[in-house]
Design a protein around this nucleic acid. Structure first.
Length: 270
DNA sequence: CGTGTGCCCTGACAGC
DNA sequence: TGCTGTCAGGGCACAC
């Protein structure tokens, strides 16, 4: 369940249990996820203390007292299970501390785990070319305007490009474009500054509201019953094909963009 | 360079 | 009850 809000709530939830904890044992149940696990993962993490946790885009960060950071990505199907009652299929990595047990479960294995020198995180290749955090101060209308200038690609696809904004995924791009009344098919470079002025707060609001809901979801995460996040009941566009637009008398349509579904209201998103 | 395509992988679900 | 096809919250390699 990993989009930015889920990664954020996952990180916050893990922090409550992991911050300040010393790792006593690391178990790999297979050699890889998307990539091979780092060759020295077990050695590097065993005995290390988790000093703090963080997030960059859709990546979670476990900082250690050894000047190295464990960076995880949940891909499409990844989640952390905290103090699981029993082992499950696809628990690929298990980290134990004196008080708790954490299993990284990812059926599709699109996720990843890496070890990066903490001081060099910004230069780590997936982060090096990344755009600003959508909830940070460096994402501005001017940034969007500059980054999108001349782009012929549809705005929907531009917003999924992590070099323009870091951390948006399919759900929140659809939701933000609906809120800003922007047609997802419009070329990125053709979105007016006025429209970008609506888009920026729309992005912030949809992420912030989802994080607020995700916070209540996190406990379900920790007690692994797989319950849907509350925010899913509040979608205005995503997954609502054929249902009435909540804003007018149009109805939501779905179509394909870059091999992935886009939902929008053709009547009010221009 | 920007842009489009296909693939990595498993599981859930619809339709036959 | 199987099968088969489709789709899924992401990211990357590759071709033009």
């Amino acid at each position: 369940m990993p989009e930015l809000p889920e990664v954020e709530t996952t990180v916050r939830g893990l922090a409550r249990y992991l911050e300040g904890e010393r790792v006593t044992r690391v178990v790999l149940n297979r050699p890889d996820m998307r990539r091979p696990f780092p060759a020295d993962l077990v050695q590097a993490m065993t005995g290390a203390t988790i000093t703090s946790l963080g997030r960059r885009a859709k990546y979670g960060l476990l900082h250690t007292d050894r000047a190295r950071t464990l960076v995880f990505h949940l891909g499409m199907s990844g989640r952390w299970r905290i103090d699981p009652a029993e082992d499950e299929a696809h628990d690929h990595l298990v980290i134990e501390t004196e008080g708790h047990r954490f299993a990284l479960n990812d059926p599709r294995r699109f996720g990843s785990v890496d070890l990066v020198d903490t001081a060099a995180l910004d230069a780590w290749s997936p982060f090096a070319a990344m755009g600003p955090e959508p909830l940070g101060e460096s994402l501005t209308v001017d940034h969007l305007h500059t980054a999108l200038a001349g782009r012929k690609q549809a705005i929907k696809l531009c917003l999924l490009d992590q070099r323009i904004v870091a951390g948006l995924g399919n759900i929140y791009v659809c939701e933000a474009l609906w809120r800003a009344r922007i047609n997802p098919k419009r070329a990125g470079g053709q979105v007016s500054k006025a429209a970008l002025g609506r888009l920026l707060p729309a992005i912030r609001e949809v992420l912030t509201q989802s994080i607020a809901d995700g916070g209540s979801t996190l406990r379900d995460y920790a007690q692994p019953d797989g319950a849907l996040g509350y925010f899913a009941t509040r979608f205005d566009a995503y997954g609502r094909e054929g249902e009435p637009c909540r804003r007018g008398d149009g109805s939501i349509r779905r179509f394909d963009q870059g091999g992935r579904s886009t939902w929008y209201c053709p009547k009010c998103q221009r």
